[in-house]
Design a protein around this nucleic acid. Structure first.
Lengths: 192, 192
DNA sequence: TCTCTAACTTACCTGTAAGTAAGTATAAGG
DNA sequence: CCTTATACTTACTTACAGGTAAGTTAGAGA
């Protein structure tokens, strides 16, 4: 195991931040190397080309979400708490300089992505839907949520909403997110 | 009035398409000039720098939506028809090579936008919310739609959903959009 | 016929992006 | 002590981005 402050980890950290702020074409190797005080070629040593770097960022993203969802899970079986965990997670991401999500960032550059990156991104999306679908199913069974129709469609629509909201929040201010969270609660028949 | 096939119009057409496919940093002057068979500098003649070009694209986008919404309006007072018009409009945009919307495209490059572009983008968003808010209000009064809570929040959430869905559709296939449209109908208490 | 302007083209410049090749410091192992 | 691998650095190349300056051409108006 490499230490947390290894050059490689620092590169990933910085690149991850830049990726979710500006997208794939919005940052250069220099934007990473300069603040870290290393040479440009140091990045090429760890990630031969930009595709390799992006691949690593997708993995990073997947890990972050997986870690977070298992954190929510640990809170207990309460579906409402898990949904609120997703809201909090989203809010935190936006507040710590990650205004857009990976799927949204990659969607812009979709045409120039390699097949394995497209697939990794797709897998991530499906994982997210599966997770939320489960939360909704449990929530409906436990009478915490009230909604009509298929729970998977509902899960997809909520994820789409959050993704869109993140982008609109950037243009129109952070309270856009709170409005959307409120609407999701209302749509799920949560009185609060 | 310049003819439809003027160089200026062709530049806007091509740039608009590229913008909604790849975002602001995803295309160059060459990507426009080459297919049109003109010199790179011809673009600079009409739009001195890239910011001027982007500004023109936002205007173009605003006009397209305004034209479309007044088309829906012309159909009659039926709120349901107007909502379906929005769905159709979105679908058509995606099918004719404009997978993402302008707000989404610009959100990625937000940090490097000039103030007037940010403002124009914000205005566009607010116009869209205002329009949909009205449709929802009328629809609720006429008992075409059934939903809880504030109509403006609902409008925002629907627009966020569509925006997110466009991006997710790119990663996961076009039927994602249909799923989301279906979910919006369900959430509005439309039986069909 | 001459002049002027709009709408370009050609030829160029500067900056910067991604990437590479070759060299170097350091520590670990035999 | 020598060798090897890791983790870099320096110095470079190639390509292309956005942008500019000066020249050209075609048509409209006096």
């Amino acid at each position: 195991m490499s230490p947390v402050c290894s050059t490689r980890d620092q590169i990933i950290d910085k690149a991850f931040e830049l990726m979710l702020q500006r997208g794939m074409n919005g940052f250069s190797y220099r934007d990473i190397s300069e603040p870290l005080g290393v040479a440009n070629a140091a990045i090429h040593y760890h990630f031969p080309n930009k595709t390799d770097l992006i691949r690593a960022l997708i993995d990073e993203n997947h890990q972050i979400l997986r870690r977070s969802t298992s954190e929510f899970m640990a809170y207990g079986g309460d579906a409402r708490t898990q949904l609120e965990g997703l809201f909090e997670f989203t809010m935190k991401q936006c507040q710590c300089g990650r205004p857009i999500c990976m799927v949204g960032a990659l969607a812009i550059d979709y045409d120039e992505l390699s097949d394995d990156i497209k697939e990794a991104n797709n897998r991530f999306m499906k994982d997210s839907v599966t997770w939320l679908d489960r939360v909704l199913k449990v929530g409906r069974e436990q009478k915490e949520f009230r909604f009509n129709g298929d729970s998977e469609s509902k899960a997809r629509s909520i994820l789409a909403m959050i993704q869109g909201a993140r982008q609109m929040a950037r243009v129109n201010g952070m309270d856009y997110l709170e409005v959307i969270f409120g609407q999701i609660r209302t749509d799920l028949g949560i009185s609060d």
